[in-house]
């Protein structure tokens, strides 16, 4: 399937995958982030159960300590 990930077209082998699986496949596992799918924020406790489908617009924002 093809999705848009941070405004870039990305291709994955699966027809659908959970947010957790996508993070694992892309090795994005090491820090805190905000994830939105088609404008809807996905809380961290839903990463394992929320599916990403073909054509979805996935946005990620990385959260670094310091303020």
């Amino acid at each position: 399937m093809k999705i848009t990930l941070n405004n870039r077209d990305e291709e994955f082998e699966a027809d659908s995958m959970t947010v957790s699986e996508m993070l694992e496949i892309r090795k994005f596992t090491f820090r805190l982030r905000i994830i939105k799918i088609n404008g809807e924020l996905i809380p961290r406790n839903k990463y394992a159960t929320t599916l990403i489908h073909d054509g979805d617009n996935v946005q990620m924002l990385y959260l670094m300590s310091g303020g």
Binding site: L32, R33, I34, K36, L41, P43, R44, L61, Y62, L63, M64, S65, G66, G67
Partner: peptide, 24 residues
């Protein structure tokens, strides 16, 4: 940061949040 952005985006839909991340 995560807790705050998640809360505002889910409980105050439509209100823009301007986050800061990466300043060191």
């Amino acid at each position: 940061k995560e807790m705050f952005i998640e809360t505002v985006q889910t409980e105050m839909k439509g209100i823009p949040v301007v986050a800061g991340s990466g300043i060191a």
